[in-house]
């Protein structure tokens, strides 16, 4: 059984194993978006000094 599936896996090209891994794709998508866009953006806002007489 184990050998059989191993054999089958060997035949599957590398890229396809990657593309078939929906969870991995999801993780990468979330990581790239949050790091590059969201968290970085929030850090910039956080580092912006507040206007001295800021009342809102």
């Amino acid at each position: 059984m184990i050998e059989e599936s191993k054999k089958a896996e060997e035949k599957i090209p590398y890229w396809q194993v990657f593309y078939d891994d929906i969870m991995l794709l999801f993780f990468l998508s979330a990581a790239i978006t949050f790091i590059s866009f969201t968290v970085w953006g929030l850090m910039e806002i956080g580092n912006t000094p507040v206007m001295p007489d800021y009342t809102f």
Binding site: Q16, F18, L25, L28, S29, T33, S36, F37
Partner: peptide, 20 residues
Amino acid sequence: QRVCRTAFVLYILFIDIASE
């Protein structure tokens, strides 16, 4: 098909940052 799938993977990885 491989090229088409690659295109979808590129969407998955890189399209959200276009929110910018």
